[in-house]
């Protein structure tokens, strides 16, 4: 049927005289055209993929340059913003100072630009504490970016939801609490652990641990402990809360080993 077919070609007349064999012959022709069509399909797909990559790469390189410029500009702006006086004179300075005039047309009406600015504020705030962090938070709210953070939490993509929750946590957006509550036991564990972290941050305690309906793994415990350390939650009654969450011996052992440095667990939990 395949590559020896020509051997039989001398017998074409006999084939035509026999109905079954004619069918076979037609099947062979059909098979040949099928192979060719599939091959052309692969060739076309390969060409389209190449074209797509080239166009995408060109576009990315172009956008990368403009995005990088935009990010640098926002970084300049934000570092000036937190170092300059927090009053009306700020605008005056930016207008009069040659070095800062380029920051003036801070057009963030475009969604993409707002996204970049929100990310820059987020990254910058992670490195700050005290009044400067507060200043950045106020600026974030002033631009209404908390609405975009809440929209992200409402979105369907789990990465967007997590990103939104990271904003809620960093800027302590209390309006997000209602949205978060239903996510604490989400089947996607990344969403769930981020919801727990945001709850700890916004509640300023770890009562959310009592609501968790499953075992947590080391990755999740790490996240929680990191958050507790970051928030410096010291005056919280961990005992009852953790005992409510940790009901089996294995988890108690993990908690004993891992949480001890942070929670002084041994003094709180008795076996």
């Amino acid at each position: 049927m395949i590559i020896l077919q020509s051997v039989y070609k001398d017998e074409v007349s006999q084939l035509l005289a026999n109905k079954d064999n004619v069918t076979d012959d037609l099947a062979v022709e059909y098979f040949l055209s099928l192979i060719l069509n599939i091959s052309f399909g692969f060739a076309v797909l390969a060409f389209l993929m190449t074209l797509f990559m080239v166009l995408r790469r060109k576009n990315m390189n172009k956008n990368k340059i403009s995005d990088t410029k935009l990010m640098e500009r926002y970084q300049d702006f934000l570092s000036s913003f937190i170092t300059l006086p927090n009053d009306d004179s700020f605008i005056g300075i930016t207008k009069n100072n040659q070095n800062l005039t380029r920051l003036e047309p801070l057009d963030i009406s475009h969604t993409h630009r707002r996204k970049i600015l929100a990310n820059e504020i987020f990254k910058f705030k992670q490195q700050l504490t005290g009044q400067q962090a507060e200043q950045l938070s106020n600026y974030f709210y002033g631009l209404g970016l908390q609405k975009e953070a809440l929209d992200l939490v409402r979105s369907r993509s789990w990465t967007d939801i997590v990103k939104g929750m990271q904003f809620l946590n960093e800027f302590r957006i209390q309006e997000g609490l209602e949205l978060i509550n239903s996510l604490v036991n989400h089947k996607n564990r990344e969403i769930a652990i981020h919801a727990i972290i945001v709850r700890i941050s916004l509640d300023n305690d770890i009562s959310v641990l009592t609501e968790i309906e499953r075992k947590m793994d080391a990755w999740e415990w790490h996240k929680i402990v990191f958050e507790i350390e970051r928030l410096q939650l010291e005056n919280v009654n961990f005992n009852a809360l953790i005992m409510a969450q940790i009901q089996d011996k294995e988890l108690i052992q993990i908690a004993d080993q891992k949480l001890n440095p942070v929670l002084e667990f041994k003094n709180l939990v008795t076996f």
Binding site: I2, Q5, S6, L32, I35, F40, F42, A46, T50
Partner: peptide
């Protein structure tokens, strides 16, 4: 002299295009 050349070239073309398709897909 027993080869069916149309089939040979068709199959060769199939294997070749598939090979480049998979490689280009990995680059993609």
């Amino acid at each position: 002299g027993l080869a069916n050349w149309p089939f040979f070239f068709a199959l060769l073309f199939l294997v070749y295009t598939f090979a480049i398709f998979i490689s280009i897909y990995s680059i993609l």
